[in-house]
């Protein structure tokens, strides 16, 4: 586990992220320090006609970074893991690509988000898309079981990025694809930043 500045612990950061995204799931229309919602999803590349055909519950609590699914080259019948699925928008998008002969496993560590995602999957009538509650330390899928892993903005919120990448590698089949959208810094943070939990959401 990497050492964090300001005496923060990974557990404290994880709890704060779980709490913050639980708030998004419960009330996505309130103000957050990061963009949330359907309008934002469309701005970062989700097709309007796709959004119109999916349950609003998924798009209204969208809090990703971009639209990674089109970059995954998904085919009918494939198995996809949506790591940090949130309200499930990418899982549903992937579900439209892999179809009923495929499988999409949306995984999130915020119980409120998983509950919201499951409601969206049920409303979308896509039984091949499922929601699983799990942190990133030991993902539910078996070794070498997925054709693709999709990640949309969770590396920047997890102190142990190497662990997440290791788990994504483990669940992928040989030749499987990791497709991610992420926030990056293009220069180091000033030394007085990153010392408080609020800094993780700025």
């Amino acid at each position: 586990m990497p050492r964090l500045p300001g005496g923060l612990t990974a557990e404290a950061v994880e709890a704060a992220v779980r709490d913050r995204y639980g708030q998004v799931a419960a009330n996505p229309s309130q103000d957050f320090t990061f963009p949330v919602g359907r309008e934002f999803a469309e701005a970062v590349g989700y097709p309007a006609d796709l959004l119109a055909g999916l349950p609003r519950e998924a798009a209204d609590a969208f809090a990703g970074v971009a639209c990674p699914v089109p970059h995954a080259g998904l085919a009918a019948g494939e198995t996809v893991v949506d790591l940090g699925c949130g309200a499930g928008l990418d899982s549903l998008f992937a579900g439209t690509r892999v179809g009923p002969g495929g499988r999409v496993i949306g995984i999130d560590f915020a119980p409120a988000m998983i509950a919201r995602a499951q409601r969206s999957f049920t409303a979308a009538a896509m039984p091949w898309v499922e929601a699983r509650l799990s942190d990133g330390h030991c993902l539910p899928p078996a070794n070498a079981s997925a054709d693709a892993v999709i990640v949309n903005g969770i590396f920047n919120l997890n102190p142990d990025k190497a662990m997440l990448l290791s788990e994504a590698f483990r669940v992928l089949k040989p030749g499987g694809r990791l497709v991610a959208a992420e926030i990056i810094l293009t220069s180091p943070l000033p030394p007085d930043e990153g010392h408080s939990l609020d800094d993780w959401f700025r």
Partner: peptide
Amino acid sequence: VFSGSPHESDAREFETRGVTFRARK
């Protein structure tokens, strides 16, 4: 990513950007 969000100025100040990447096992 942060264009139009309440913390757009922080994102600019800290030079954060969104990026997509792809890799293969």
